[in-house]
Simulated assay, not measured.
Amino acid sequence: MTLQSLRPTLLLALLLIPGPAVASAPALLATGSFLVPGLGQFINGEPAKGGFHLATWGTAADIAAYYRTRDDYIEPGDRHDEDELVITTNRTSERADLFGTVASSTRFYSAFDAYRQRRTMRGNRGYRTPISDEGFQDLARAPFEARYLSRPTTFVPMAIAASGLLLSSEDSWVTRTQGGLTRHETAAMLMPRQGAVALGEEAFFRGVLNNSFHHQFGPWWGTAASSVGFGLAHSGAGLSANAGVATAYGVYLGWLHQHNDYRLGENVAVHFWWNVLVSAAALRHDPDERTAVVRWEFRF
């Protein structure tokens, strides 16, 4: 794991602050399933689910590693020209990212599932916050459910993200594809990749961290702690939010989580559509469409 991917592990350590034994067991299982997907499920008496998590993570990680060793793979640090706002990618790099995302999101979701299941098994005793009963299918469907899309708390962030689609090529990130990769092919990978990101990150940062920190420290400090963790997990490279922006976004998502009585469906919907729309905006234009070199950019 990279340093950035280990940061959530440090946050999980905060869940293990000494307290009632009934409250520490779910955190231990979440940590176990984060480090070895499926471990918490095996301990919870769900070997089939644990085996599926482990196999999914291992297979996706192996495929991602294969693509990363190919000669035409573009390292993440070489893809983004911050001065001219150009993203360069190819088929090998996109496939590596897709399977790498599935692997990391499986790790996140497995931690949440083990944590949620153990709290449910114990009747949520010892906790001041409720635990969601939403499973994988509930969260996977959430971005397409009218009950979430019709809420201002969902469609206002969507509208903000969609505003990027109106920017000209001179004023936005643009994408240069290489090696026969087409824009349609890149767009086709957007939804499964961003679906995995939204589901995995919301399950972990809100479903585990925000919920537990609210229980331990109360809503204000709990939201602050989970939001800082969310911010630290973002690099700021290319279309990724920097730590400050991601922390602010995490505050909104933490509030939304609490507002919905700690259910995750709307969080997944907001996160998914934000990422899809921001990414789609960068796919609209090719660098060759530009009539001038971009010399300025607006950042929060």
Rank of each mutant, 00 (worst) to 15 (best):
L181C: 01
L181S: 12
L181P: 01
L181N: 07
H184F: 10
H184A: 15
H184C: 02
E185R: 05
E185P: 00
T186Y: 04
A188T: 01
M189P: 00
M189T: 09
M191Q: 07
P192Q: 14
P192E: 10
P192H: 13
R193Y: 08
Q194G: 00
Q194Y: 15
G195Q: 12
G195L: 15
A196Y: 02
V197Q: 13
A198E: 02
A198G: 07
L199P: 06
L199W: 07
L199F: 01
E202F: 07
A203C: 13
A203D: 03
R206Y: 04
R206S: 14
R206T: 13
R206C: 14
G207S: 06
V208H: 01
L209T: 11
N210H: 05
N210W: 00
N210S: 12
N210R: 03
S212N: 07
S212V: 01
F213R: 03
F213G: 02
H214L: 07
H214C: 10
H214W: 04
H214E: 10
H214A: 13
H215S: 06
Q216V: 01
Q216G: 05
F217N: 05
G218P: 06
G218H: 11
W220E: 13
W220N: 06
W220P: 00
W221D: 00
W221N: 04
G222H: 05
A224W: 12
A224M: 12
A224G: 14
A225K: 08
A225C: 05
S226L: 10
S226Y: 08
S226P: 12
S226E: 08
V228H: 01
V228R: 00
G229A: 13
F230M: 11
